[in-house]
Design a protein around this nucleic acid. Structure first.
Lengths: 300, 300
DNA sequence: TCCATTATACTCGAAATGAGTACTCTGGGT
DNA sequence: ACCCAGAGTACTCATTTCGAGTATAATGGA
């Protein structure tokens, strides 16, 4: 019986938020996530990936977390024909880096993740693409009441609330239903930009993980510059969650948790009244704070 | 530059709760977690592991979730000397199975996980072993205020609450401090039973994951028989979390979430008044229910 | 018959949550 | 000089959830 030797590959979902857009680092004109072979001369997976990313991008990675290890035979249908290749094991990571300036020439590019998942951005309104998708799904839903229920639950229909954490599950449903093919060649703008292989699924995994993580762990600050205004912080959380939040409540919670402190300086107001600048509190307990950053949603 | 080929290995943390004790499946007289090479003739990691476990144990696995992929060079210090071996990549899984009867001869054995982590069981009282451990740690804590704070936070000292979810972090601290060696050969009963290699760390990862998972996802029911009393359910959650819960509040929450329904039958009371039997509600939305099974702790 | 043990039904105050209102600065246009 | 748009900041208020405690009901065994 053939026993498991396989090539190990690391794949990174690198996220930054610039101009209130959540962006992900991509290669090949936005078609692929950065990835590379696992070099055996590093102490650990984590250390190896960190070094590799920093050499590739020049940006330090503030936060790095393992996402998932993929090794399904049918991960990438293109490989099916090629036969004898050992099945690759891919270890996905989620990394957070601070705001990026415009990338230099030849540099990797950062794309808003809503290019890949346009139906996930609910900041202004329920996105229009959703209607188109749901219309397409109606057909698929005819085959059973459970399908209908699942759609209603995942997309917040029939009075059920939209749950921003379910990005991966929604993507999986679209895939199951045949709407989103592995590498979708059709020009269906409502289905979002495709990626190579299963990279888009890995991105969805990263988004789902990050969206749920910000609710109970202060990782947002890994995406913020040294000092920022409360609105800037709120806009960043909104960008990630794809939701609009209630300003007074957001502020109340942020300072209840004592995670930030005033720098003493004011912002040179971009719009109205100048705002106090804050900094992340030199977190004595680091990752230890339980910080329940609940998101209080609200239109308007 | 040597690039990554490695042997892939699956390691399972298989959990069941019997007699109000959380048990984990072990091999070699409780010294190792079950593990095996990743066979390439399975469709996916998940499917491969499931088949393998069922053939090994005869028990179906209700719930299976990937834990973490380990590949640190210094995972197992014994390997350091041996040189040229490719570094193994181990993919850890958490699996839940229903209550087990006594194991047959030659069968794998199930041990309470508190044998390995005696300081994690706070159901009756703060365990005595904790005092011994904390005394040992005091020495280590002298080297910096942050160490002191970390200890206080992880072990719930100085008015801070005991947080049952931090099993892994506590184990890591014990390891860092030199108290728990990889394979602790000393006969320190307060440090718990050792395991081969990094198996005990993997077990800690599983416990941490399960303890936090039961709070927002109805996985407990994968450990319950078809019908059960409310107290039985409570005792199971208590066994996993290592905490004592407040009975009225536990009941209130359980039926607010509408996850269970009466079977109509009563238990043939083991103690006092007979109790209604319940069953898990044929969960229409399956994993989709958000079920905030908050644990309301309380002595007494 | 008393009692230990479990089941089950309430109460009550504190805290957290969701939603809304009002008032304060600032710069830019008219 | 005045107004106003855009942002900041301080409250209020009803509802829900949470943590903790009390009271009463049904069993079986000493």
């Amino acid at each position: 019986m053939p026993s498991g030797f396989a090539q190990a590959e690391l794949i990174a979902v690198l996220v930054a938020v610039t101009d209130n857009e959540p962006r992900v680092m991509t290669l090949r004109a936005g078609e692929a996530l950065p990835s590379g072979p696992f070099e055996t001369d590093h102490r650990s997976l984590q250390a190896g990936l960190r070094a590799w990313i920093e050499s590739q991008t020049g940006h330090p990675v503030g936060y790095l977390e393992q996402l998932y290890t993929f090794a399904d035979r049918d991960r990438d249908p293109r490989k099916h024909e090629e036969g004898g290749n050992p099945r690759p094991i891919s270890i996905g990571y989620l990394g957070l880096v601070r705001e990026q300036e415009a990338p230099g020439a030849g540099q990797p590019s950062w794309h808003s993740w809503y290019q890949y998942f346009p139906w996930e951005d609910h900041r202004d309104r329920r996105p229009d693409v959703l209607e188109a998708i749901l219309a397409d799904l109606d057909d698929w839903a005819k085959d059973g009441a459970l399908r209908r229920q699942r759609i209603d639950y995942l997309f917040g229909l029939k009075g059920k609330p939209w749950n921003e954490d379910l990005t991966l599950q929604r993507y999986e449903l679209l895939f199951e239903s045949g709407l989103a093919d592995w590498a979708d060649k059709r020009e269906n703008p409502e289905l979002g930009r495709p990626m190579t292989g299963d990279h888009r699924r890995i991105l969805a995994t990263g988004i789902t993980r990050l969206r749920s993580k910000i609710k109970y762990h202060p990782v947002v600050f890994e995406l913020m510059p040294d000092s920022f205004t409360l609105l800037h912080l709120q806009r960043t959380v909104e960008a990630l969650s794809g939701l609009r939040l209630h300003k007074p409540n957001f502020r109340r919670q942020v300072d209840q948790q004592k995670l930030i402190e005033e720098t003493g300086e004011m912002s040179n107001g971009t719009g109205g009244r100048p705002a106090k600048l804050f900094r992340y509190r030199p977190a004595i307990l680091e990752a230890q704070v339980l910080s329940n950053v609940r998101l209080s949603v609200s239109r308007h």
